[in-house]
Amino acid sequence: MGELVLSADIGGSHITTVMMDVENRIEVPDTWFRTRLDSTASAQEIIGNWSNAINTSIALKNITPSKICLAMPGPMDYKKGISLIQSQDKYRELYNLNLKDKLGERLNFNPKNIHFSNDAACFLKGELFCGSLSGFSEAIGLTLGTGLGTSHIEKGIAHDSNLWKMPFLDGIAEDYISTRWFTKRFEELTGKSVKDVKEIIDEHKNSDHFKTLFSEFSSNLAKFIYRFAQSKKPLAAVIGGNIANAEAYFLADTRKHLFEMMGYSLPVKKSILGEKSILWGAATSH
């Protein structure tokens, strides 16, 4: 067994932790742990819940990792481990705190061996490391869910592209490529309120407007990828997030639209790692 790293994916409502053997590209069996979080809680409670999740994964095999690597949304000074989230509905209580020091103290772990990385960048890094983009070097990544995550590779390093707020159509990109767009547009077409894309598929797949909805989305997504690709010149793209699970209804059309715009076929692949792409990306970022 090679060097073991504790990897964590911290979202707005959950934390997932697992021990990784990076050298051999394997997940340590029976160390996966996931629990819900209240990201509006106090700093002490949030850091306590993170620590409990990390300790749970470590205790499952009773092996101390050499590093603890955490993927987390920004804004953040990732190198120093200082959260800069201030105006979002999550983790406001962590603003300006040194999370490396706080976690190190709570876990009795050297803060120098605790590392933070951007979650969108980790998604792409993981897919390149052992996922659907294995063998590619220059690529872009999109996570399609409640919000829009974007990432790109520059000189071998994964970066958050931060394009969710890019001017797009009559608003910003996230207005058109997110769960919010699906629920809003579905209600405009049908007059019915739905919670998410899964509900649309499960309960309204045979409705008159289902094809219209996904046809519009595939067009929006292709236009966005085209603009993204124009600036970053990738060799491939990968999509992940909850909306990617509905690929059967939009991905073929997205590729077709993209081919028409670009004049060549840019590989657009669905993540094969799912949530594990972020965990692998975090574990291999330091």
Results as ranks from 00 to 15, higher is better:
Met1Gly: 14
Met1Leu: 13
Glu3Cys: 08
Ala8Ser: 00
Ile10Ser: 00
Gly11Arg: 00
Thr17Gln: 00
Val18Ser: 01
Met20Ser: 00
Glu27Ala: 05
Thr31Ala: 09
Arg34Pro: 03
Asp38Leu: 11
Thr40Cys: 13
Ser42Ala: 14
Thr56Ile: 04
Ser57Gly: 01
Ser57Thr: 09
Leu60Glu: 06
Thr64Ile: 15
Pro65Ala: 01
Ile68Val: 14
Met72Cys: 12
Lys79Thr: 13
Ser83Arg: 01
Leu84Ser: 07
Tyr91Ser: 07
Tyr95Leu: 14
Asn98Val: 03
Lys100Leu: 05
Leu103Thr: 01
Glu105Phe: 03
Phe116Glu: 06
Ser117Leu: 07
Ala120Ile: 09
Lys125Tyr: 12
Lys125Ala: 15
Cys130Ile: 11
Gly131Trp: 09
Ser134Asp: 08
Leu142Gly: 05
Leu142Val: 11
Gly149Ser: 11
Thr150Asp: 10
Glu154Asp: 12
Lys155Ser: 15
His159Trp: 13
His159Cys: 13
Phe168Ile: 11
Gly171Cys: 08
Ile172Gly: 05
Ala173Thr: 06
Trp181Ile: 02
Phe182Glu: 06
Thr183Cys: 08
Arg185Cys: 08
Arg185Ile: 01
Phe186Val: 02
Asp196Tyr: 13
Val197Ser: 13
Val197Asp: 02
Lys198Asp: 09
Glu199Cys: 07
Lys205Arg: 15
Asn206Arg: 13
Ser218Cys: 04
Ser218Gly: 08
Ser219Leu: 12
Ala222Met: 04
Ile225Trp: 01
Ile225Leu: 05
Gln230Trp: 09
Ser231Gln: 14
Val238Leu: 02
Asn242Ser: 14
Ala244Gly: 04
Glu247Ser: 15
Ala248Ile: 10
Tyr249Val: 09
Phe250Asp: 10
Ala252Gln: 15
Asp253Pro: 04
Thr254Asp: 04
Thr254Ala: 10
Thr254Ile: 12
His257Glu: 10
Leu258Tyr: 07
Pro267Phe: 04
Val268His: 05
Lys269Gln: 09
Lys270Thr: 15
Ser271Ile: 10
Ile278Cys: 02
Gly281Ile: 12
Thr284Tyr: 02
Thr284Gln: 07
